[in-house]
């Protein structure tokens, strides 16, 4: 059963990784991806909006899909919402398995699918008070599509 969280607070990578190994000795590897807020074009902050209820359902579905494709011993998806400053983490994906290939592939799958399949929207705030909604990128659709079938 995947651990899925949508929260304003930051997350603790070491604590989340330890949780996946807690009380078991069959985990051979844990792959981790942390997405950070870049200061592209001098943005002052990113504001993450989501669809409460649907977001959790969508993430759980994506995690369940990963668990059905790879022999995972566990996986974790934590996505922050609200105001996030450049340099701060936005999203954490962990996939644990007996062997590295399953953990690494599942981790890449989770972040690729999450980017196109979960209802989050990013708004960029600038120092002068301006703002701009981030537009979806075709390259993200292509990254998700490579896992089709």
């Amino acid at each position: 059963m995947a651990r899925v969280l949508v929260q304003e607070a930051c997350f603790d990578l070491a604590a989340e990784q330890a949780r996946l190994g807690e009380g078991r000795v069959d985990v051979g590897g844990i792959a981790a991806f942390t997405g950070l807020c870049r200061a592209d074009d001098g943005i002052a902050a990113l504001v993450l909006e989501h669809y409460p209820g649907m977001t959790e359902r969508a993430l759980e579905k994506i995690a369940a899909e990963a668990e059905s494709r790879w022999p995972l011993t566990g996986c974790t998806v934590i996505h922050r919402v609200g105001r996030i400053l450049p340099g701060e983490p936005i999203v954490l994906v962990l996939a644990a398995s007996r062997h590295r290939s399953a953990a690494l592939e599942a981790c890449a799958f989770l972040i690729d699918w999450l980017k196109t399949g979960a209802p989050f929207w990013k708004r960029e705030e600038f120092a002068d008070g301006g703002e701009r909604w981030v537009e979806a990128r075709a390259s993200d659709d292509a990254a998700a599509a490579r896992w089709a079938g």
Binding site: G35, L48, H50, Y51, M54, H79, I90, V91, I111, L114, K115, T116, G117, A118, P119, F120, W121, K122, W133, V134, E135, A136, D140
Partner: peptide, 10 residues
């Protein structure tokens, strides 16, 4: 029913 732009999470 919800309406929104293409998603941009991650």
């Amino acid at each position: 029913v919800a309406f929104f732009p293409p998603v941009t999470g991650g």
